[in-house]
Design a protein around this nucleic acid. Structure first.
Lengths: 417, 417
DNA sequence: ACAGTTTCCCGTAAATGC
DNA sequence: TGCATTTACGGGAAACTG
């Protein structure tokens, strides 16, 4: 029998969106003697799946057969790259859809198969390999869910092709998971998460515990159940922040100026007794993809007062970069000269020293340029009201799949067909 | 011979985008005696065009044959509605494209043909009709150009199917054209253009003339040549404003609070001697799809000073509605209490009286809500610097075509084929 | 009715063609 | 090479479908 065998250098399963082109490459690592004819490779989607095993079925819309070629740069290896492949869903196969209605689309795992067949000395040899599991989505809004599946799979199994993985997904240790989360940030935003940030994330998942390093997180709690009192899951929330950073906060994040993951309690504890005008940046916990700043002031009797603004979301940040917002932010009340209350980035970096190089537009001097100023909402207890849809993770990772036909299984048969 | 005949109630040619579904309906107004079999109608794109007549060729991607049916609501009329039709370009027909490289894509006119054939008493009768000219585009960015063609065609010819119209397009009288332009605004934005607004548009086209009602505008000057010193044509500019109104200014426009089309000279003449804080709203002439306001102040010696802001474009207006911007606008300088300089909408309507009902978000009172404030750029002579791409006219008009098979041509032949 | 999922298609950016 | 045109696809919203 043919045995599926695993490519060696494919690191993770990936996400494919229907109707969007992707590319995949197969390389034959075995040296075949005296192959002077063309070696055709055919790629098939979900080749070996018994119908009904997955609830949705797809096929490759475009040409799926190609001839192997000697790689330009390599040691004479044969390889073939399929470009402009596109997936489309089969509609109404056998009346209705398959059985596994329990799994959501992003938990349903698929795979790409590659086959080649050639004859040497009267012996017909079949080569076959297939990809690591794939998640198929139909809209970018499903990308965060797909990415959650990819992470969980990579974290918790070494099996190359356990397509039933999400039928009963294992739990993750927080120590493992937190490392993976940090890795997401370092990979996609250039800087990972530090201990304090990860501790805050752990608290969000487990509640207030002295140490949560040996706690376990269920798949459901990670990405399916909503956070209590919130209309989104833990991962949807975290991913929305990752997206916000990627699109609007990269330089500020990379300079380590965003503390970001701080509870409101911790925030106050940190700012208390700091110089008036000391502020820090933190991500909204109540809204997807929002960032806000909080600063401390002191009343006449010396009581600390904490102020923060309504979170900035991608819409507002695409109108004005965050560094400029910080530079130009002013508190204004009727009949009072407006003033920027943000003086020192926590713990004590003068604002312009920290953000000076990150300012984009011209600073507001005299009466020349236009400038945004925001009224102080006076308290971090202001109930947030704006609803902004979460920006899904942009793809761009799922356009190249790469497989090796190494460790290939050989199968004898008695001639063609 | 078959003669193309014209539907009676189709008012204008339309625009179809490749890859986007459209619907068309054909109605048979002639009562056919004793037709007890199914009457098939076939629709063909550019049926009678000799190859090479147009530079691009298209075909209907989806099923293009359907059976006529008795209309539910009518007097037993036969009709058929084609839904989900989609156009795709034929690639590489006969090596290269046709000859007419002189016309731009939006000047190239096409048509949909409808054919039906039936036999009565041994006589085979062919029915045929076709649509008014159609413009085919591949991206919504071509919609304004397409719409310009549609307007010019409708304005200047009564021919039902002059597909060569833009080979040598006639000029338009300003008196006719201005009426059509006003009609665009009344149809798509709910309020047309008044005499003063149209006079300003005439000046833009002809320069300063006492009366331009008998001037003629060439097709090129209307939509192809750039306005001197600007990177866009007259119509591209006007359409960008129409789009801005449709998406962001509808209520303000319909209340007639936007003077809009005023030259800077006229603006100053109007505001001079008005009460300090009197302002008016006008569209940017230097940028596509921008609106600004100008107000008058007086210095100590009584000289009038005119101030205006950098134009608001769709991006900024989607962050905050225009009425709210007017309400919250404040001039701010270092060390000075900020104040809203906008007091009276020209000629003398108190700001809140005019815009009060149009305010959307909560007004900024005390220290509760956030608020945008813009620094006074001090002069309307500030060179504008931001570049914003022009929002093309949204389609939505091009999804229904409707034709009658009335006045149908009958053709005898000796049997099928 | 409703939620999960897919389809539709604008609008921007990139690719392509001439 | 530059411009005109098409293609690609993210993202929001509507349509679909059990």
């Amino acid at each position: 029998e043919k045995q599926p065998c695993m490519p060696t250098h494919l690191q993770k399963p990936l996400i494919i969106k229907t109707g969007v082109q992707f590319t995949t490459k197969v390389r034959l690592l075995v040296k075949l003697p005296e192959v002077d004819y063309q070696l055709k490779v055919k790629t098939t989607f979900d080749k070996d799946l018994p119908p009904g095993r997955v609830s949705r079925q797809f096929f490759i819309l475009t040409n799926n057969t190609k001839v192997m070629d000697i790689e330009d740069y390599s040691n004479g290896c044969l390889s073939v790259e399929f470009r402009h492949l596109q997936l489309k869903e089969k509609k109404y196969i056998n009346g209705t859809k398959g059985s596994e209605g329990l799994l959501s689309v992003t938990e349903e795992l698929h795979s790409l198969s590659f086959e080649a067949c050639f004859t040497v000395q009267g012996l017909t040899i079949d080569l076959e390999t297939c990809s690591l599991p794939l998640v198929v989505i139909s809209n970018v809004s499903q990308l965060p869910g797909g990415w959650a599946s990819v992470m969980w799979y990579n974290l918790l199994t070494d099996e190359p092709r356990n397509l039933a993985f999400f039928g009963n997904p294992p739990r993750a240790n927080w120590s493992q998971l937190s490392e993976v989360l940090s890795w997401q940030f370092s990979t996609f935003a250039g800087r990972g998460l530090n201990k304090e940030q990860l501790a805050m994330l752990g608290e969000k998942l487990f509640g207030q515990h002295a140490s949560c390093s040996d706690y376990q997180v269920s798949w459901s709690k990670f990405s399916k159940e909503n956070i209590p009192g919130k209309p989104f899951s833990f991962w949807m929330w975290l991913d929305s922040i990752l997206e916000l950073i990627k699109k609007h906060l990269l330089p500020v994040w990379n300079e380590n100026y965003i503390m970001g993951f701080v509870s409101k309690e911790m925030e106050r504890a940190l700012l208390k007794d700091k110089e008036a005008g000391t502020f820090l940046l933190r991500f909204s916990e109540s809204h997807l993809g929002g960032i806000t700043f909080t600063w401390v002031e002191y009343s006449e009797n010396g009581d600390a007062k904490f102020n923060s603004v309504e979170p900035y979301t991608k819409n507002r940040l695409s109108a004005l970069p965050f560094a400029d917002i910080i530079r130009d932010y002013k508190v204004i009340s009727d009949g009072v000269v407006p003033e920027n209350p943000l003086k020192f980035l926590y713990p004590n970096i003068p604002k312009d020293e920290a953000f000076g190089r990150l300012y984009n537009s011209q600073p507001s001097k005299g009466k020349r340029t236009s400038l945004f100023i925001y009224l102080d909402p006076n308290a971090s207890t202001t109930p947030p009201s704006c609803q902004s849809p979460q920006p899904p993770m942009t793809p761009g990772e799922f356009d190249v799949l790469c497989f090796d036909l190494s460790d290939v299984s050989l199968h004898e048969s008695n001639g063609p067909n």
